[in-house]
Amino acid sequence: MAQKTIEVQGMTCGHCKSSVEGALSALDGVNEANVDLEANNVAVEYDESKVDASSMAEAIEDQGYDVVK
């Protein structure tokens, strides 16, 4: 399993946390997603053979948040 921390702007509350974690967890290959609201990021544990960083960024952006690239 690979790990990646993705910086996300616009998350401010528990609903934001749930939206981002839910969107990432729904992707095939994502094992775990943990949002840190204070740090404005999400730590993701995933299978590199099933999902890539651009797919994860797209899932976050589809929820209305900005991924810092």
Score class of each variant (00 low, 15 high):
residue 1 M to Y: 14
residue 1 M to L: 14
residue 2 A to S: 15
residue 2 A to L: 11
residue 2 A to Y: 12
residue 3 Q to S: 14
residue 3 Q to L: 10
residue 4 K to L: 12
residue 4 K to H: 10
residue 4 K to P: 01
residue 4 K to T: 12
residue 5 T to D: 00
residue 5 T to F: 13
residue 5 T to W: 11
residue 6 I to L: 11
residue 6 I to K: 05
residue 6 I to Y: 02
residue 7 E to N: 11
residue 7 E to G: 00
residue 12 T to Y: 12
residue 12 T to C: 09
residue 12 T to R: 12
residue 13 C to G: 08
residue 13 C to W: 08
residue 13 C to V: 07
residue 17 K to R: 15
residue 18 S to K: 15
residue 18 S to G: 14
residue 18 S to Q: 13
residue 19 S to Y: 07
residue 21 E to N: 07
residue 21 E to P: 01
residue 22 G to V: 07
residue 23 A to H: 03
residue 23 A to M: 10
residue 23 A to K: 01
residue 24 L to Y: 08
residue 25 S to R: 14
residue 26 A to D: 04
residue 28 D to V: 04
residue 28 D to F: 03
residue 29 G to V: 08
residue 29 G to F: 02
residue 32 E to H: 12
residue 32 E to C: 00
residue 33 A to M: 08
residue 33 A to P: 05
residue 33 A to G: 02
residue 35 V to E: 01
residue 38 E to C: 11
residue 38 E to S: 14
residue 38 E to I: 07
residue 40 N to W: 08
residue 40 N to G: 15
residue 41 N to V: 05
residue 42 V to N: 08
residue 42 V to H: 10
residue 42 V to M: 12
residue 44 V to D: 00
residue 44 V to P: 07
residue 45 E to Y: 08
residue 45 E to P: 00
residue 45 E to W: 05
residue 45 E to K: 14
residue 46 Y to D: 01
residue 46 Y to F: 15
residue 47 D to T: 13
residue 47 D to P: 11
residue 48 E to N: 09
residue 48 E to V: 07
residue 49 S to D: 00
residue 50 K to I: 06
residue 50 K to N: 07
residue 51 V to Q: 01
residue 53 A to H: 08
residue 53 A to I: 04
residue 53 A to T: 09
residue 53 A to V: 02
residue 54 S to Y: 15
residue 54 S to F: 14
residue 55 S to I: 06
residue 55 S to M: 10
residue 56 M to H: 06
residue 56 M to Q: 08
residue 56 M to S: 00
residue 61 E to I: 05
residue 62 D to K: 10
residue 62 D to V: 01
residue 62 D to G: 02
residue 63 Q to Y: 06
residue 63 Q to A: 02
residue 64 G to E: 05
residue 64 G to C: 04
residue 64 G to H: 06
residue 64 G to R: 02
residue 65 Y to W: 05
residue 66 D to C: 08
residue 66 D to R: 15
residue 66 D to F: 11
residue 68 V to L: 12
residue 68 V to D: 00
